[in-house]
Simulated scan of single mutants.
Amino acid sequence: MTVIENEYLRVSISTQGAELHSVFNKQTGVEQLWQANPDVWPWHAPNLFPVVGGLINDELHVDGQNYAMKRHGFARQSEFKMAAETTKTHALFSLHYNDETLKVYPYKFTFQIIYDLIENSLRVTYKVINLESKPVYFSVGGHPAFNVPFNAGESYEDYYLEFETTEALATHRLSAEGYFNGETDPVQMNGNKLRLTRQLFDNDALVFKQLNTRQVTIKSDKHDQSLSVEFPHFNYLGIWAKPGADFVCIEPWLGCADTEGKQVDISQKECIQKVEQGHVFESSFYVSV
């Protein structure tokens, strides 16, 4: 386990999936990250690559060929290498293409995940390096789960999500198989606040595709502790918790699930990203306490 820390945060990261295992708030003594109870949801903060969400029939289509690909891709179950340049406040993890990745994703790439502590914020950066002589298509996203409530003796219903802007929100419905079905539902807000309830995720995640907001903050009615996720360049956002669980996921995405009846080539997928030959893609989001 790799640990980076400063006066505000102590962060632990595993080489499997380059996944966060702990975001400990040293100012309040609170563990902010869900601790992956295997009886509830066995992840902390999986990194999603090279797809986000589910693919119809678990198949990825590339240039007329079909490849077996599970929901959210293979990165979260892959072993990353930690770079030697790791410092007290900086850690870089790399996943390089190999024979196994080429069987399911026919591109040569390096996928890097970089963690930096900047005062009271953790910056998470995704880099995709194209090693091909053609464009590489991919999706990428975060899936961090944050403990709610923050403190013992509090209630889940004491908490709400505060959006950066006040706007009419609609969630894009997912089928039982995890594909968009083309329908939307309005989300009941109180101004820019979304109350956390035990029923909020009964119909799966809330998925927003056209947000003006670029920051969502977890707050409580009972105190002024908070946690914010800022995602300046991520166009889609998922918010989810397993019903009844004491966490909420705030998920910045550059990519999304398939839509029912619309199985297309990777280059035509909704919200797909492209990095040209000889180029590097890079995008970051921030977790702040």
Rank of each mutant, 00 (worst) to 15 (best):
F180N: 09
Q225A: 10
V207D: 00
L122P: 08
T86V: 14
C249G: 06
A168K: 08
F281P: 13
H96W: 13
S220A: 08
Q273C: 13
E157G: 01
V52P: 03
A45D: 06
E270L: 08
T2M: 09
F93T: 13
W240R: 09
F150D: 04
D185W: 01
A257C: 14
V136N: 12
F93N: 11
N25W: 02
G54E: 14
Q27F: 00
A18F: 04
S267Q: 09
H223V: 10
V62E: 03
V136G: 10
K108C: 13
L211T: 00
Q268A: 02
T86E: 14
I118W: 00
G153C: 07
A45M: 03
G73I: 14
G73P: 06
E154T: 07
K209T: 01
K242D: 03
T28V: 04
H143P: 04
E167I: 02
L117D: 06
N212C: 00
A91L: 07
D39W: 01
K242Y: 02
A36Y: 03
E270G: 01
G142Q: 07
Y179G: 06
Y8P: 01
R173Y: 03
S22P: 03
T110Q: 14
K193N: 12
P50K: 14
Y107A: 11
E251G: 03
C256T: 15
Q65A: 04
Y115W: 06
E276P: 08
L60W: 03
I114F: 00
G64Q: 01
Y159D: 05
F180R: 12
R198Y: 04
L20S: 07
Y286H: 14
S175E: 08
N203C: 01
K108Q: 15
N37M: 03
G244E: 06
H223T: 10
Q32K: 14
V148M: 08
Q27A: 10
F93R: 11
Q112Y: 06
S226K: 14
D202P: 00
E157T: 15
E85M: 12
V136I: 15
K193V: 05
G182Y: 06
Q65D: 02
A145P: 07
A145E: 02
A75K: 11
P243K: 09
E276G: 15
T28I: 04
T86A: 15
H72T: 09
Y286Q: 11
D221S: 11
D202F: 02
T28Y: 04
G54R: 15
F93Q: 11
V104I: 15
R71F: 04
V51F: 08
A84T: 15
A170T: 10
P135Y: 12
L237E: 03
R195P: 02
L174D: 08
L102T: 14
H96G: 06
Q112V: 03
F231N: 05
G255W: 10
I13T: 10
R195L: 07
T166I: 05
I56H: 02
E19L: 03
Y97L: 12
H44I: 01
F109N: 12
T28C: 04
L200A: 06
P149F: 02
W253K: 05
N37A: 08
G29A: 10
H172Y: 12
C271P: 00
P46D: 09
E183C: 11
